[in-house]
């Protein structure tokens, strides 16, 4: 029992209540920031299509999802203008090739023009980089996730929304 809260004066009790209200506001500010950063690309971003292949794991807190491996998740080191280390932020320039967007170059700084996506280097072994864009998970009910993995097999299209600063959000998978 929190005995230390007992015997408070009215003034300190008011302070405690104000503190608790501020904490609740703080929690909801975090939730609002998370929500807005998630929906912002969907509201104001430009849609592009990327080729992907899904597999089905389970997240500890969020349930089942299909893990998406995009064609642009692997970028040749020859496309880079810098020798990236693991964990560093990178910008991948994209060009539309028939249906899908494909990677054309890899930059350390945000490109001034063109379509590009912001990611982070997850590994740099061999002749290519693995890049994560924060759009690698698509959450769905377990049965649907398993069915999606079976139906889609090795090829699927993900509709991604991109903001001007390269931040991406996934909207659809088919």
């Amino acid at each position: 029992m929190p005995d230390t809260m007992k015997n408070r004066t009215p003034a300190s009790k008011r302070l405690l209540i104000a503190g608790l209200i501020l904490t609740i506001i703080f929690q909801f500010t975090i939730l609002a920031a998370e929500y807005l950063s998630s929906v912002w690309p969907l509201w104001f971003g430009k849609p592009i299509a990327l080729k992907t292949a899904p597999v089905d794991p389970r997240s500890l807190f969020r349930g089942n999802y299909v893990l998406l491996n995009y064609d642009v998740s692997t970028v040749s080191k020859l496309m880079g203008d810098y020798s990236f280390k693991r964990g560093e932020v990178a910008y991948v320039s994209l060009t539309k090739n028939d249906t899908y967007f494909v990677a054309t170059s890899l930059h350390r700084n945000q490109p001034k023009s063109g379509t590009f996506i912001r990611g982070r280097i997850s590994s740099n072994t061999g002749g290519s980089y693995r890049v994560k864009y924060g759009i690698e998970a698509f959450f769905m009910p377990k049965a649907k996730a398993l069915k999606a993995q079976k139906d889609i097999g090795k090829g699927a299209t993900a509709v991604i929304y991109l903001l001007d600063n390269g931040k991406a959000a996934i909207a659809e998978l088919h």
Partner: peptide, 14 residues
Amino acid sequence: IMLIGQIYHIGEHF
């Protein structure tokens, strides 16, 4: 927090 992550498919650095 987890629900928002699930609804909007936030896969970036869980």
